[in-house]
Design a protein around this nucleic acid. Structure first.
Length: 248
DNA sequence: GGTTATGTTATTTC
DNA sequence: AGAAATAACATAAC
C-alpha cells in the first residue's frame, strides 16, 4: 500500500490522534517498547518517503508498510496484529508491516530534502545524485529511496511515460534537461496523486502503470521485468525514447 | 500449486 | 573497500 502520496494521505487521516495519550500499545513487532509507550503523548506524525513516523517526546516509532502492509483506523482486521495503538479517542492498528524504534532526533536520521513530497525537496540534489550513477537503468534509479524518497513502481512507470523516456535508458545518457524534467515530474505526479487521494476521486489515474494500451499510440504497452531488481515496467517502445551510449 | 504484487534489507559476490 | 547482484521476508489474490 505504499508510495509516498498514500503515506501522506494516511498521515492526514491520523492527525486527529495528535495530542492524545497512548492508553495501551500492543502487538508482535519486535524492538517496540510497548510498556513505556503507555501514557506517552503523540506529539506529531510525519512521513519520510514511504515511512510513517509517530513522534513522541523522547522517541519515534517508524512504520513501513512494505509490500503487504495493512492498517485499520478504529477497527480491527482479522490477521496478526503487528502494532496496535489505543488512544482515548480511538485506535490505530498495523499489520504485516515493518516497525522500528528510533531514539535519535529525526533531523539526524532523515534528510528531508530527499523526500519528493517534502517542502524542502531539493531537485538539484536529486539530479546530482542521479548523475552519480550514470550506468544505472533509469527505471532502477527512480526507485532509489536515497535519491527520490517516496517514488514507487507506479509513479516510476507513469513519470517515464509522461516524459517519454524508455525505462531501459541509462541515467548517464539522458540529457540533463530531460533528466531535470523527469525529477520535476516525480514531484508533480506525487502531488497530483496526493490530491486525488484527498478528493477521493474514483477511478484510475495511471496512464501507463498496469495499463494495457498506450494512450498516445494505441498499441499495447510492453510489460516487462527490467534490471537486476526485476520490478515490472510498463512502457511503449514507440513513444518512449531509449537513451543508450553510441556504439561505434 | 504456482505466480504475482504499490518494497526493503541483510548477505553474498565481484 | 565498495558497488552490485541475490536471497530473504511478508501476504493475499488469481
Amino acid at each position: 500500500m505504499p508510495e509516498g502520496p498514500q503515506m501522506v494521505f494516511l498521515k492526514e487521516q491520523l492527525e486527529p490522534f495528535i495530542g492524545q495519550v497512548v492508553l495501551k500499545a500492543t502487538g508482535s513487532a519486535k524492538n517496540i517498547p510497548y510498556a513505556s509507550m503507555q501514557n506517552q503523548v503523540l506529539t506529531s506524525i510525519k512521513t519520510f518517503g514511504k515511512e510513517l513516523l509517530f513522534c513522541f517526546p523522547d522517541f519515534t516509532i517508524r512504520i513501513h508498510l512494505m509490500l503487504f502492509g495493512k492498517y485499520a483506523i478504529n477497527e480491527e482486521l482479522n490477521r496478526v496484529l503487528r502494532l496496535g495503538l489505543a488512544f482515548e479517542g480511538g485506535s490505530i492498528n498495523f499489520y504485516a508491516c515493518d516497525c522500528r524504534f528510533i531514539s535519535e532526533p529525526l533531523n539526524q536520521v532523515y534528510d528531508w530534502s530527499t523526500d519528493v513530497l517534502h517542502p524542502s525537496f531539493d531537485p538539484d540534489k536529486a539530479l546530482a545524485k542521479l548523475y552519480r550513477k550514470p550506468k544505472k537503468l533509469i527505471c532502477e534509479a527512480l526507485l532509489d529511496q536515497d535519491i527520490l524518497a517516496g517514488v514507487g513502481n507506479g509513479i516510476k512507470n507513469d513519470v517515464l511515460f509522461r516524459m517519454q523516456i524508455h525505462p531501459e535508458s541509462l541515467v548517464g545518457e539522458i540529457p540533463e534537461a530531460a533528466l531535470q524534467k523527469l525529477v520535476q515530474a516525480c514531484v508533480k505526479l506525487s502531488t497530483e496523486y496526493l490530491d486525488w487521494k484527498r478528493e477521493g476521486t474514483a477511478g484510475n489515474h495511471w496512464q501507463a502503470y498496469k495499463q494495457p494500451t498506450c494512450p498516445r499510440d494505441y498499441i499495447p504497452f510492453r510489460k516487462q521485468k527490467i534490471g537486476p531488481s526485476g520490478r515490472t515496467s510498463y512502457f511503449c517502445d514507440k513513444c518512449q525514447q531509449l537513451y543508450l551510449p553510441d556504439t561505434i
